[in-house]
Deep mutational scan, measured.
Amino acid sequence: KVMEIKLIKGPKGLGFSIAGGVGNQHIPGDNSIYVTKIIEGGAAHKDGRLQIGDKILAVNSVGLEDVMHEDAVAALKNTYDVVYLKVAKP
């Protein structure tokens, strides 16, 4: 199931950690970017929809399929206060 989640960045950013990407696979044979941690009190935690194990398909208009881990981190960092995440639920 794919959904779009709109998050408003807090003082600590979006409030979640990711793993995965080309050269840094979270699941062997899979280059996808996965949510590995939700920080308590952060934007994602308060919103409640993003969960550990969700796959991040895109940030705003930037696709995160088959990208390097660093590029995924940069895509999440290089955002304004309002961030749209395209997410696939497991």
Rank of each mutant, 00 (worst) to 15 (best):
D81R: 10
L57C: 14
G13Y: 03
N60M: 03
S61Y: 13
K46F: 11
L76V: 11
V22S: 07
V73D: 13
V82I: 11
D30N: 07
K89Y: 04
N60C: 04
N60A: 03
K55Q: 11
K77R: 08
P28R: 11
G41F: 06
I52D: 10
G41E: 09
I33G: 01
G15P: 01
K55I: 12
N24K: 12
I18M: 13
D47V: 03
Q51A: 12
K37E: 15
N31W: 05
G20C: 02
V73N: 14
I5D: 00
I38H: 00
V87W: 01
G48T: 06
V35A: 03
Q51R: 10
V62P: 01
D54L: 02
V83G: 03
Q51Y: 05
N78L: 07
N31A: 06
M68A: 14
A74Y: 11
E70C: 13
V87R: 02
H69W: 07
L76Q: 02
V87N: 01
K86H: 08
G15L: 02
I8E: 06
G21N: 03
K1Y: 03
V59F: 03
A58E: 13
Q51L: 11
M3F: 15
L76G: 01
A44L: 02
P28W: 04
V22I: 06
G20D: 02
D54S: 07
V59P: 00
G21Q: 02
I33K: 02
A43Y: 04
G20F: 01
G42T: 07
K9R: 10
P11H: 08
F16P: 00
K9H: 09
Y84P: 04
A74Q: 07
D81S: 14
E65F: 08
S17P: 02
G23M: 05
S32D: 09
R49K: 15
I52Q: 14
F16L: 10
G53A: 05
K46A: 08
L85S: 01
T79M: 07
H26P: 04
G48E: 07
A88M: 13
A43H: 05
K6V: 07
G63H: 10
I52G: 06
I33M: 05
I8Q: 12
Y84C: 14
L64G: 02
K12V: 11
L14N: 03
N24D: 15
L85P: 01
E40F: 11
H69L: 06
L7K: 01
Y80T: 09
S61I: 04
A88T: 09
V62R: 14
A58P: 00
V62I: 12
I38W: 01
A19H: 09
K77M: 13
D66R: 10
P11T: 12
K46Q: 12
I39M: 12
S32Q: 07
L14H: 05
V73M: 09
A75H: 14
V59K: 00
L64Y: 08
L76M: 12
I27A: 10
E65I: 08
Y34C: 07
V82W: 12
L14S: 03
S32C: 15
I8M: 13
A43I: 09
G29M: 06
N31G: 03
G13C: 08
Q51D: 10
N60Q: 05
Y80P: 05
G23Q: 06
I5W: 03
I39C: 11
T36N: 15
D66P: 04
Q51I: 05
V62F: 15
I38S: 00
L57Q: 12
G48Y: 02
G23I: 06
L7W: 02
T79G: 12
D47Q: 10
Y84I: 15
V67L: 10
K55L: 08
V35T: 03
V73R: 10
G23C: 10
I33N: 01
A58M: 10
G15I: 00
L76H: 03
K46L: 11
A19N: 11
D81N: 12
H45C: 15
K46S: 13
I52E: 13
V62T: 12
K37T: 12
N60R: 02
D47P: 00
P90C: 08
E40W: 07
A75Q: 11
R49N: 15
A19S: 14
E40A: 12
V73S: 10
I18G: 01
G29R: 07
G63A: 14
V82C: 12
